Simulated assay, not measured.
Amino acid sequence: MSISALTPPFTVETATAKVRAGEDLWNTRDPERVALGYTPDSRWRNRSTFVHGRDQIVDFLTDKWASERDYRLIKELWAYSDNRIAVRFAYEYRDAQGHWFRAYGNENWEFDTNGLMRTRHASINDLTIKDTERLFRWDSAGVRPDGHPGLSELGL
């Protein structure tokens, strides 16, 4: 199901599906495709960066995935209401020197009536990890396989 097909008001089932659809979309690492899940005038706070509109989203994600290589993301529903969803997430990536990191965070999302995200607030912290500590091991640039554990199952 497409991410924009899941529209408010959310139920636990549709909110959970929306979170997984968002995870799958971000794991494509395709900035143009990801930006289509947001309103044309979407507003973000990502760490200390403020982004407004799809063009800036594309620019931001292009830069992000150029420096965060082999990016793999898992999201989990935390809470939801009529048109808002809170998620917790973790993702793993390596830098240009081959050092691995796991980023942990929370996001607050607000959607328009068409199911497009109009507001995204992300708080994120990074932790250096060894290759042997990596937990997100599936084919690069692809969605998390159905059998792969989520955050709770991984103890994150």
Rank of each mutant, 00 (worst) to 15 (best):
S140M: 09
T39Y: 02
D24V: 00
L151Y: 05
D30W: 00
N46V: 06
T28G: 01
R47P: 01
N27Q: 02
V58G: 05
L154G: 06
R54W: 04
T14K: 01
P149K: 06
L61D: 05
A15D: 06
N106C: 12
R144W: 00
N46I: 05
D146Y: 03
V34E: 03
F10W: 02
E13R: 05
S152H: 07
W78D: 12
T128A: 15
W100R: 10
W100I: 10
V12S: 08
H52V: 02
I85P: 09
T113R: 07
S152E: 07
E76V: 14
K130L: 15
D112Y: 00
Q97H: 11
Q97T: 14
W100L: 09
S48Y: 03
D63F: 08
S67R: 15
R20H: 05
Q56V: 03
M117Y: 09
A86G: 09
A15E: 06
S48K: 01
E32K: 06
A141D: 07
F60I: 08
W26G: 00
G98W: 13
A86L: 08
V12H: 08
I57E: 08
P8A: 06
H99P: 12
R144T: 05
T7V: 06
D59W: 10
E110K: 12
T16A: 08
H121P: 00
W26T: 02
E23S: 01
